[in-house]
């Protein structure tokens, strides 16, 4: 049997401010390598909350999270940072590029942090990723000189730099127009089909979701279909 990329076992989470509300209730599901899955559901049903737990950034939850078979519970902050660095590429709704660095450097930063390749190699790899996303020509610009669609593609290139086990996205097309959304979707699809990349994308765009390989539907903090 293939090892699961990601496994959520009885994950629950409550917010206590101002009153205790349970936003995630006994979430159970898993992802196999190469799957291109989307999470859909109404606004406020807990999709983002779940994704931040799955990405190890949020550690305040009940239940267990396994990434490539390893339990993330009780790991220290530094160890989780390493897991994110090595295994998870995150694409947010907002691009979050650092304006102090060039596009190329932005893509390189997680690679330099990983410290697996020399700086020269990281740079070559960053160019490769930018090429996949067809924005290698903007490499030396500053992020604030790019359009919204281009920025989001740079963010995807950054997510790819360390060849992550999984790419997670929280409404990565939420801020984009139809044309750019399509471009981003096509990139995800190419990554999944050509590069066999595992992807888990939160969206409220049903059209987007319908084109993915697997749809996980949430309602009121529960998974109702997967």
């Amino acid at each position: 049997m293939q090892e699961k990329v990601l496994e959520a076992i009885n994950i629950s989470k409550s917010f206590h401010d101002p009153i205790t509300i349970k936003v995630l209730k006994d979430i159970n599901f898993s992802l196999n390598p190469g799957e291109f899955a989307s999470i859909i559901g109404k606004s406020g049903c807990g999709k983002s909350t779940l994704l931040y737990i799955l990405s190890t950034m949020d550690t305040d939850y009940e239940g267990d999270l396994l990434i490539s078979g390893i339990n993330m519970k009780n790991k220290k902050e530094g160890e989780l940072a390493l897991v994110r660095n090595q295994k998870i590429g995150f694409v947010f709704q907002f691009h979050y590029l650092l304006n102090e660095f060039s596009v190329l450097k932005n893509v390189m930063l997680p690679g330099l942090k990983l410290n697996k390749y020399s700086e020269k190699e990281v740079e070559n790899r960053a160019y490769e990723k930018l090429k996949i996303l067809d924005i290698q020509n903007e490499a030396l610009k500053k992020p604030n000189q790019l359009s919204g669609g281009q920025k989001q593609r740079v963010a995807i290139a950054r997510a790819l730099i360390n060849d992550p086990l999984i790419i997670m996205g929280d409404e990565p097309t939420g801020n984009l127009d139809k044309k750019n959304s399509d471009i981003v979707f096509d990139i995800f699809k190419e990554l999944a089909e050509v590069y066999n990349q595992t992807l888990l994308i939160v969206t409220h765009d049903n059209e987007f979701a319908s084109k993915t390989h697997r749809i996980i539907e949430m309602e009121d903090g529960k998974i109702i279909k997967h």
């Binding site: 990405s55 950034m57 902050e77 530094g78 940072a81 390493l82 994110r84 660095n85 090595q86 995150f90 947010f92 979050y96 590029l97 650092l98 102090e100 930063l109 997680p110 942090k113 990983l114 950054r158 360390n162």
Partner: peptide
Amino acid sequence: MDSIAILKATGFSGND
């Protein structure tokens, strides 16, 4: 704040 958040999201630890 944003830059710090993204550094952390992409694998920089609190210590870094």
